[in-house]
């Protein structure tokens, strides 16, 4: 009986196992192999040892895109998290009014990235864009967001903040799970609202925050479509808007260097795994898990 049941389990999960093997595990392993070869798409791979990895060390473009991506992740993830928490805290109610606010914040996350990129190209347009017109109203001469290298990163981060709705909704759902008695108790202790947020709400939310921060980080490390559409113009790539996944894509499909692209992809994977592990480790002290 138990043996048959064992087989039944494997049968039920087999679709995923087969699919993951075909579309995930084998490609991942192949990618590792290709990363040790020279592989222009049109000719067979040729063993090249660790040269692709060695090359990263002295490739200035690699360091440029790594730096840009690191800055983007390091600034946008914390800012998004803080903004999402604040918005969630003030909109967490179940009233019709709160629902409407939540919907407003959530809607931008539904906009396809390509459409969002075009929308913000228009918003940030130096002379006609709404952003600079609004700044003009309060007497500020807005920068050339899309061409001035100093302003490309802030523009992208503003866009990432616009897409914060998903996190807000997640935090609101978690907030609604926090037992009311905890707030009542804190109120009786004479805590003010901000202190309650800090001492009660945050600890209770911390597992959700951790999970969300990890997801945001994994996505931010891979940022591709928006800078791909916005900063690739007729006269080439704006270096400030050049990110890791874009350079990886260029190497694979533009420069015909699949091997180098795969090596970069593996470095990206290892970085993501490392970041995740570090966050889990660091969170041991910070995250509060309710006794289940």
């Amino acid at each position: 009986m138990s043996a048959r049941r064992g087989i039944a389990g494997w049968v039920w999960v087999s679709p995923w196992l087969i699919g993951a093997a075909a579309f995930l595990f084998i490609p991942v392993i192949l990618s590792l192999y290709y990363s040790f070869t020279d592989y222009p798409m049109l000719e067979p791979p040729l063993w090249a040892g660790v040269s692709n990895y060695a090359r990263m060390l002295e490739d200035p473009t690699f360091w440029l895109v790594t730096k840009n991506t690191a800055i983007y992740v390091a600034v946008s993830v914390p800012l998004c998290t803080i903004l999402a928490l604040v918005l969630a805290a003030v909109m967490a109610g179940r009233s019709r009014f709160d629902r409407l606010l939540q919907a407003a914040v959530f809607i931008p996350t539904l906009v396809p990235l390509i459409a969002a990129a075009m929308l913000w190209l228009w918003m940030f347009n130096g002379e006609l864009g709404l952003v600079n017109r609004a700044l003009g109203l309060i007497g500020i001469d807005g920068p050339s967001w899309l061409t001035d290298r100093a302003w490309v990163m802030p523009a992208l981060i503003i866009m990432s903040l616009w897409g914060v709705g998903q996190s807000v909704v997640i935090y609101i759902a978690a907030l609604q799970d926090v037992p009311r008695q905890m707030y009542e108790a804190a109120k009786l202790d004479g805590m003010t609202a901000p202190r309650r947020f800090w001492h009660v709400t945050l600890p209770m939310l911390s597992p959700v925050i951790l999970f969300n921060v990890i997801t945001l980080t994994i996505n931010a490390v891979q940022v591709f479509a928006i800078p791909f559409v916005m900063f690739r113009q007729v006269d080439g790539q704006n270096p400030a808007g050049y990110f890791y996944s874009m350079y990886l894509y260029d190497n694979a499909f533009q420069y015909g260097q699949m091997g180098y692209a795969c090596a970069m992809a593996w470095v990206q994977l290892l970085v993501i795994v490392a970041l995740t592990l570090v966050m889990f480790a660091a969170s041991k002290r910070l995250v509060y898990y309710r006794a289940a």
Binding site: N125, G126, E127, S144, L146, T147, D148, Q233, V234, D235
Partner: peptide, 12 residues
């Protein structure tokens, strides 16, 4: 000169 150029860079 950078600011000057940025003004019409997208307006070719």
């Amino acid at each position: 000169v950078g600011e000057f150029f940025d003004r019409f860079r997208t307006s070719i």
